[in-house]
Protein backbone atom coordinates (compact mmCIF):
# COMPACT_ATOMS: atom_id res chain seq x y z
CA UNK A 1 0.00 0.00 0.00
CA UNK A 2 1.18 3.46 -0.88
CA UNK A 3 0.17 6.49 1.16
CA UNK A 4 -0.26 9.88 -0.36
CA UNK A 5 -2.00 13.17 0.35
CA UNK A 6 -4.10 14.61 -2.44
CA UNK A 7 -6.04 17.83 -2.06
CA UNK A 8 -5.57 17.64 1.68
CA UNK A 9 -6.91 14.14 2.02
CA UNK A 10 -4.82 11.12 2.92
CA UNK A 11 -5.20 8.07 0.73
CA UNK A 12 -3.89 4.55 0.80
CA UNK A 13 -3.78 2.98 -2.61
CA UNK A 14 -2.86 -0.48 -3.77
CA UNK A 15 -0.47 0.52 -6.52
CA UNK A 16 2.94 -0.69 -7.57
CA UNK A 17 5.58 1.76 -6.31
CA UNK A 18 6.76 2.69 -9.80
CA UNK A 19 3.26 3.75 -10.85
CA UNK A 20 3.33 7.34 -12.01
CA UNK A 21 1.11 9.63 -9.96
CA UNK A 22 -1.02 10.27 -13.04
CA UNK A 23 -2.42 6.74 -13.07
CA UNK A 24 -2.99 6.73 -9.33
CA UNK A 25 -4.94 9.97 -9.58
CA UNK A 26 -7.01 8.77 -12.49
CA UNK A 27 -7.49 5.07 -11.87
CA UNK A 28 -7.25 4.70 -8.10
CA UNK A 29 -8.66 8.02 -6.94
CA UNK A 30 -11.08 8.60 -9.82
CA UNK A 31 -9.82 12.11 -10.56
CA UNK A 32 -10.12 13.31 -14.16
CA UNK A 33 -8.18 16.56 -14.21
CA UNK A 34 -4.66 15.30 -14.86
CA UNK A 35 -4.58 13.91 -18.38
CA UNK A 36 -2.36 11.46 -20.20
CA UNK A 37 -0.85 13.35 -23.08
CA UNK A 38 2.55 11.88 -23.77
CA UNK A 39 3.90 10.07 -20.73
CA UNK A 40 7.25 11.66 -21.59
CA UNK A 41 7.11 15.01 -19.82
CA UNK A 42 6.78 16.87 -23.12
CA UNK A 43 3.26 18.29 -23.15
CA UNK A 44 2.19 19.23 -19.63
CA UNK A 45 -1.38 17.95 -19.81
CA UNK A 46 -0.72 15.88 -16.66
CA UNK A 47 0.52 18.88 -14.65
CA UNK A 48 -0.38 18.92 -10.96
CA UNK A 49 1.11 20.83 -8.04
CA UNK A 50 3.31 19.09 -5.48
CA UNK A 51 4.49 21.12 -2.52
CA UNK A 52 3.71 24.31 -4.40
CA UNK A 53 5.64 23.38 -7.52
CA UNK A 54 4.15 22.37 -10.87
CA UNK A 55 5.18 18.81 -11.72
CA UNK A 56 4.50 16.37 -14.52
CA UNK A 57 2.50 13.63 -12.87
CA UNK A 58 3.16 11.19 -15.72
CA UNK A 59 6.82 11.02 -14.66
CA UNK A 60 6.34 11.11 -10.91
CA UNK A 61 6.50 7.64 -9.37
CA UNK A 62 4.00 7.52 -6.55
CA UNK A 63 6.69 6.20 -4.22
CA UNK A 64 8.46 9.58 -4.11
CA UNK A 65 5.40 11.31 -2.68
CA UNK A 66 5.62 10.30 0.93
CA UNK A 67 5.04 13.34 3.12
CA UNK A 68 4.35 15.62 0.18
CA UNK A 69 1.19 17.51 -0.70
CA UNK A 70 -0.40 16.87 -4.08
CA UNK A 71 -2.93 19.32 -5.49
CA UNK A 72 -5.04 18.71 -8.56
CA UNK A 73 -7.60 20.86 -10.33
CA UNK A 74 -10.32 19.09 -8.35
CA UNK A 75 -8.88 20.65 -5.21
CA UNK A 76 -8.63 24.24 -6.39
CA UNK A 77 -12.21 24.94 -5.42
CA UNK A 78 -12.85 27.50 -8.13
CA UNK A 79 -9.81 29.72 -7.82
CA UNK A 80 -9.10 32.93 -9.69
CA UNK A 81 -7.38 31.06 -12.50
CA UNK A 82 -10.35 28.78 -13.09
CA UNK A 83 -12.70 31.76 -13.08
CA UNK A 84 -10.48 33.63 -15.49
CA UNK A 85 -10.36 30.67 -17.87
CA UNK A 86 -14.16 30.55 -17.81
CA UNK A 87 -14.44 34.30 -18.34
CA UNK A 88 -12.10 34.19 -21.31
CA UNK A 89 -13.71 30.97 -22.63
CA UNK A 90 -10.12 29.75 -22.82
CA UNK A 91 -10.68 26.29 -24.20
CA UNK A 92 -11.40 24.57 -27.43
CA UNK A 93 -11.20 20.82 -26.96
CA UNK A 94 -9.99 21.56 -23.45
CA UNK A 95 -7.83 18.48 -23.03
CA UNK A 96 -4.81 20.56 -22.10
CA UNK A 97 -6.74 22.99 -19.92
CA UNK A 98 -6.51 21.35 -16.51
CA UNK A 99 -2.74 21.20 -16.94
CA UNK A 100 -2.67 24.83 -18.02
CA UNK A 101 -4.74 25.88 -15.00
CA UNK A 102 -2.43 24.00 -12.65
CA UNK A 103 0.73 25.45 -14.15
CA UNK A 104 -0.73 28.95 -14.17
CA UNK A 105 -1.90 28.56 -10.56
CA UNK A 106 1.61 27.57 -9.50
CA UNK A 107 3.05 30.56 -11.36
CA UNK A 108 0.71 33.07 -9.75
CA UNK A 109 1.29 31.62 -6.30
CA UNK A 110 5.00 32.24 -6.69
CA UNK A 111 4.85 35.35 -8.83
CA UNK A 112 1.56 37.22 -8.43
CA UNK A 113 2.56 39.90 -10.96
CA UNK A 114 4.19 38.09 -13.85
CA UNK A 115 5.22 39.91 -16.99
CA UNK A 116 3.93 38.76 -20.37
CA UNK A 117 7.35 37.20 -20.93
CA UNK A 118 7.16 35.38 -17.58
CA UNK A 119 3.73 33.96 -18.44
CA UNK A 120 4.75 32.78 -21.89
CA UNK A 121 7.99 31.22 -20.73
CA UNK A 122 6.31 29.53 -17.80
CA UNK A 123 3.49 28.10 -19.93
CA UNK A 124 5.82 27.01 -22.71
CA UNK A 125 6.19 23.62 -21.04
CA UNK A 126 2.51 22.96 -21.76
CA UNK A 127 1.25 22.27 -25.26
CA UNK A 128 -2.09 23.24 -26.77
CA UNK A 129 -2.93 21.97 -30.24
CA UNK A 130 -6.26 23.69 -30.86
CA UNK A 131 -4.56 27.08 -30.86
CA UNK A 132 -6.23 28.51 -27.77
CA UNK A 133 -2.99 30.21 -26.75
CA UNK A 134 -4.20 33.81 -26.87
CA UNK A 135 -7.17 33.08 -24.64
CA UNK A 136 -5.07 31.10 -22.20
CA UNK A 137 -2.62 33.99 -21.98
CA UNK A 138 -5.51 36.40 -21.52
CA UNK A 139 -6.93 34.20 -18.76
CA UNK A 140 -3.64 34.14 -16.88
CA UNK A 141 -3.32 37.91 -17.21
CA UNK A 142 -6.88 38.29 -15.96
CA UNK A 143 -6.22 36.00 -13.00
CA UNK A 144 -3.17 38.12 -12.21
CA UNK A 145 -5.39 41.18 -12.15
CA UNK A 146 -3.93 42.58 -15.35
CA UNK A 147 -7.17 42.61 -17.30
CA UNK A 148 -7.97 40.00 -19.85
CA UNK A 149 -8.13 40.34 -23.57
CA UNK A 150 -5.26 42.20 -25.09
Amino acid sequence: MIRLTVNGQQHEVDAEPDTPLLYVLRDDLGLNGAKFGCGLGQCGSCTVIVDGQPVLSCLMPVSVLSGRQVRTIEGLGGNAVQHAFAEEQAAQCGYCIAGMVMRATALLEQNPHPSEHDIREHLSLNLCRCGTHMRILAAVRRAAGQGGKS
Binding site: N32, K35, F36, E74, Q82, A86, Q89, G94, Y95, I97
Partner: peptide, 13 residues
Protein backbone atom coordinates in the same frame (compact mmCIF):
# COMPACT_ATOMS: atom_id res chain seq x y z
CA UNK B 1 -16.23 24.22 -20.49
CA UNK B 2 -17.19 24.06 -16.78
CA UNK B 3 -16.49 20.32 -16.50
CA UNK B 4 -13.22 20.77 -18.32
CA UNK B 5 -12.15 23.44 -15.82
CA UNK B 6 -13.03 21.54 -12.69
CA UNK B 7 -11.97 17.98 -13.41
CA UNK B 8 -15.45 16.74 -14.23
CA UNK B 9 -15.72 13.75 -16.56
CA UNK B 10 -15.53 15.33 -19.99
CA UNK B 11 -13.87 12.90 -22.36
CA UNK B 12 -14.00 9.28 -23.39
CA UNK B 13 -10.59 9.14 -21.72
Amino acid sequence: IPAKLTGGPAYVQ
